[in-house]
Structure formats: C-alpha cells, structure tokens
Computed example of a mutant assay.
Amino acid sequence: MLKLIGAALVLFAGTMIGFVQAARFAERPRQIRHLLHALQRMETEIGYGQTPLPEALARIAQVLPPPLSGLFAETAASLQSASGGTVRDSWEKAFRSGWSATAMRPAERDAMLRLGGTLGGSGREDQLKHLRLAMHQLQAEEAAAREDQQRYEKLCRSLGVLAAALVVILMM
C-alpha cells in the first residue's frame, strides 16, 4: 500500500513538473504581447499625449499584469524619486533586477535595454523611432516564441508524465 502511494506521488510530481514547464512556454508569448501593448501605449503617451516619462511609465504599470507591471513601476518610482538617476540607469536597474520573474529570454531583455538607453535622452521623434524599432524586434521574438510554444508545450507535458511513469516502473 505504501509503495502504491509513493508511486502515485512520483507520478503526480513528474506530471506537475511537465505542466509547469509547458506553462512557461505558453507564458512567454503572452508576456511579449503585453510588453508590445505597453510599448504601443508608451508611444501614444510620448507622441500624442506628450506625457512626462515617469508619469507615462506609472500609467503603463497600472494596466500591465505582474511581473511586467513591476518593471515599469520600479522605473517610474526611481525616476520620480529625488535620487537624480538617469532614465537609462533607472530602466536598466529595474529590468535587470526584475527580469528573472518573467518567462522571457535574454533577446527580449536586450531589446528593452537598448530602448531604455534612448528614452529621455533625445527628441520626441527619435524616441518614437526607437520605440517602433523595439516593437518590431519584439514582434519577431513573439513569432519565435509562438513557434517554440507549439513545438515544445505538448512535448513537455508528455515528457513529464512519461518520465514519472519510468521512475514508477523502476521503483516497482
């Protein structure tokens, strides 16, 4: 009886590991899409609303789901504080510290860091060009993420179940 309970627990744990890994593949394109919406909103705030950057980042943070909202909120808070840091420093600090909480990869982070280096340091038109460039890069990454999701999501679930089943068979 104890062996049967142990086998069931191993099977459950292996299955859950597979499902968690599959969820990460599903979460990456969703987060990239949210990031694209955030950049579109930032483009609107800068281009048409002429909103100051800290205020625009705070507004964007309010509509984003976590963990992305934390990246923009931390940047906005850093810019609004009296520390006197540059936009680039605040942006890099927030994105480097909070990136591990996302399901995204270094390619997306690098695109966002390049964007952060140009925000607030040039004219409105130049900032809009850099925003569009970052959006194009993220759209390409989203397409790759969707391909990875289609390719690996089901595989991860199946491997989790099958690996757990193999362990159970070896235990018996």
Rank of each mutant, 00 (worst) to 15 (best):
L2G: 15
K3P: 03
L4G: 04
G6C: 08
G6T: 12
L9I: 08
T15A: 15
F19L: 14
V20G: 07
F25N: 07
E27V: 01
R28F: 04
I32Q: 04
R33W: 02
H37K: 03
L39H: 07
L39I: 05
T44K: 02
I46A: 03
I46Y: 05
I46Q: 03
G49P: 03
P52T: 00
R59D: 09
I60M: 06
A61N: 03
Q62H: 13
V63R: 15
L64W: 12
P65C: 09
P66Y: 02
P67D: 13
L68W: 08
F72C: 10
T75C: 13
T75H: 04
A76N: 00
A77N: 15
A77G: 15
A77D: 14
S78H: 06
S78I: 00
S78D: 10
A82K: 14
A82D: 14
A82E: 13
G84E: 05
G84V: 02
G85I: 09
R88I: 03
W91N: 01
F95R: 07
R96T: 09
S100F: 05
P106Q: 12
P106A: 09
R109S: 02
D110L: 12
M112D: 07
L115P: 03
G117T: 09
G117H: 11
G120Q: 02
S122M: 04
E125C: 04
D126P: 00
D126V: 10
Q127Y: 02
Q127H: 02
L128I: 08
K129M: 05
K129R: 11
H130D: 07
H130A: 09
R132G: 08
L133H: 12
L133G: 07
M135Q: 14
H136S: 14
Q137R: 13
L138D: 03
E142I: 05
A143F: 01
A144N: 06
R146E: 06
D148T: 07
D148P: 02
Q149M: 14
R151K: 14
Y152W: 12
L155F: 11
C156K: 12
C156E: 01
S158K: 10
G160P: 11
V161G: 09
L162V: 13
A163Y: 01
A164C: 13
A165D: 04
A165I: 11
A165F: 10
L166G: 09
V167Y: 03
V167P: 05
V168F: 07
M172G: 13
